[in-house]
Amino acid sequence: MNKINKLMIKVITILFLLSPLAWGVETMTIDPMHSPHWSAMHERFLNNGTVVFDEKVEVFAPEKAEDSLNVPVSFKAEALDAVEELVVFADFNPIPLVLKFRPGELQPNLSFRMKLQQGTPVRVAARTSDDIWHVGTVWIDAAGGGCTLPSVGISSGNWTETLGRVDANVWERSGNNRLRMRIMHPMDTGLAAGIPKFHIENLFIRDANSQSVLAELDLYEPISENPMLSLDVGRYSQFSVKGRDNNGNKIEAIISQ
């Protein structure tokens, strides 16, 4: 009897020591979503680097995805100093990596739309110059199917008529202008039967006057068809946007007010 009691006490003590409660300080580094995929995501996209779950990376999305093919997501990391790169991924998506954004001269803020296959955490990890990943997370519930459906453009067959078309505008705001652009592209994931993956891979945003690169974006399969991007571009108001897709098609646009 005594032996058992002692054993129980030992077990409970060990369990407590292993639990996050005993390590109050460390809870900052424990995934608030308790996702079973977090450690795999951490290794794959953040190179097992130092991570802080940080409210300074504000991520916004509706709680429920109304349209799994077009789930709006935005993030703001302007509260952090010296953000070098932001990586967006969704743990439970068949293709988790959504985009990479090196904001350079622009604000580390972005709005976009993505495809979701099921309910999942969506993460925005911002790497600051001290090599720490600051991670903001939202949970989005989704009915699913977003990643395994063919694009509307491919289904209707008319995507070639508009491939690479850019529609955009610049809004002057005090000290922080807004650039919005929509690029016509099927963004097929390769997961719909018989339709190979076909997506924009990168975009370089330059100052149209000096031609210096302001920011770079890498887009992946989960970005919605005809990507719509909204950026906070500081004082800049004239842009040259260049990019290409995984088939080598070029995207070129000079955007001003």
Binding site: R165, D167, N169, R180
Partner: peptide
């Protein structure tokens, strides 16, 4: 929640009206 759903349904057409075709004639 209904406002959020409505934005998803209705905004794509509305926002398209304020964008300018940038490179269309060229391509």
């Amino acid at each position: 929640s209904e406002l959020q759903r409505s934005v998803t349904h209705l905004y794509p057409q509305v926002e398209a009206q304020v964008l300018k075709a940038i490179n269309w004639e060229k391509t």
